[in-house]
């Protein structure tokens, strides 16, 4: 059985005003376990307590009740942070530094030797695709570029647990896809990832397990594939069939007491379409792309 690396026990957060009066019950008795090597997604609408959970785990907020543990230690033990990488909701970085200096600074906080720090910074900048802009101050960066540096700083210590708060926020579709690929890469390297997002497609694409929060309460938790399986519906995908074949299949379904709910061509996602067009444009500059027709329609 995989080791539990992130754990919350009866984790509760109540925001109070200056006089100690209760304002918001942001998180209610959350019990959660995340195992080593899995990608866990926290889902929920705005204000459901996703970010609060992450901040409680990181010690940015103090729990009103309960415990928030990573590697079995609470936030007061800063040595545990040596194995944690954190990408905040917005990349809160020092805008007067350039990308190289940013990674160097955060590397120093982990006491990484200078040579290793330099090498790792270069590798990470290569991975996030910012080598060309590493000498520019972050204040000149676009939001997406800052986000990439943010991810790089979260990985500078080669962490065992990576906590990502809305990792795809502010990224264009290509950046989003890259980010998702990087998250999957982290899993391949055996790292544990906790991410929260309200972009369901992103979570669906990368997460092994998810938890759904609503108004501070955990409403559902489980594996993505089992949670998303609609048990009273059967889906068969084939290559394009003539109308006669469809009619015949409809008869077979009726014969067995079933009901055909819809028949038509499979629809791609807008993300796939966009990425195909961009790819085609790269290969044939100056030519109008046909991403929409290239799927055979």
């Amino acid at each position: 059985m995989a080791e539990v690396v992130v754990e919350t026990r009866n984790l509760t957060k109540i925001y109070r005003d200056f006089w100690g009066r209760r304002k918001v019950h942001a998180l209610k008795s959350l019990d959660l376990e995340i195992n080593q090597g899995e990608i866990f997604g926290l889902l929920g609408p705005n204000g459901s307590g996703k970010t609060t959970t992450i901040k409680l785990l990181l010690g940015l907020l103090f729990p009103s009740e309960g415990e928030a543990l990573i590697f079995g230690k609470n936030a007061s033990d800063v040595r545990r942070n040596e194995r944690i990488g954190y990408l905040p909701e917005e990349s809160y970085l020092y805008k007067f530094l350039n990308a190289e200096e940013t990674l160097d600074f955060y590397g120093k906080l982990f006491h990484i030797p200078a040579a290793v720090r330099r090498q790792r910074a270069n590798d990470l900048l290569e991975i996030v695709g910012l080598t060309y802009a590493k000498k520019r101050q972050l204040k000149e960066y676009s939001k997406g570029m800052v986000r990439r540096v943010g991810l790089a700083q979260a990985l500078i210590n080669d962490p065992d647990v990576v906590i990502l708060d809305e990792p795809t926020s502010g990224l264009d579709p290509i950046g989003t896809r890259d980010m998702k690929d990087m998250i999957l890469d982290l899993k391949k390297q055996g790292k544990t990832v906790l991410m929260c997002s309200h972009l369901l497609a992103d979570v669906q694409d990368v997460c092994d397990r998810i938890g759904i929060l609503f108004q501070g309460e955990l409403k559902e938790i489980g594996r993505v594939d089992s949670l998303l399986t609609v048990k009273d519906t059967t889906e068969i995908q084939t290559s394009t069939l003539p109308d006669a074949a469809i009619e015949e299949i409809r008869g077979v379904v009726q014969k067995y007491g079933g009901e055909v709910k819809s028949v038509g061509n499979t629809r791609t996602t807008l993300e796939d379409l966009f990425l195909r067009i961009v790819e085609e444009s790269k290969q044939h500059p100056g030519r109008r792309a046909h991403g929409g027709e290239s799927n055979g329609n």
Partner: peptide
């Protein structure tokens, strides 16, 4: 205000 401190206190920094 800029929340840059978030990326510092989540490192092994006292």
């Amino acid at each position: 205000k800029n929340k840059t401190i978030h990326t510092v206190v989540t490192k092994p920094v006292l």
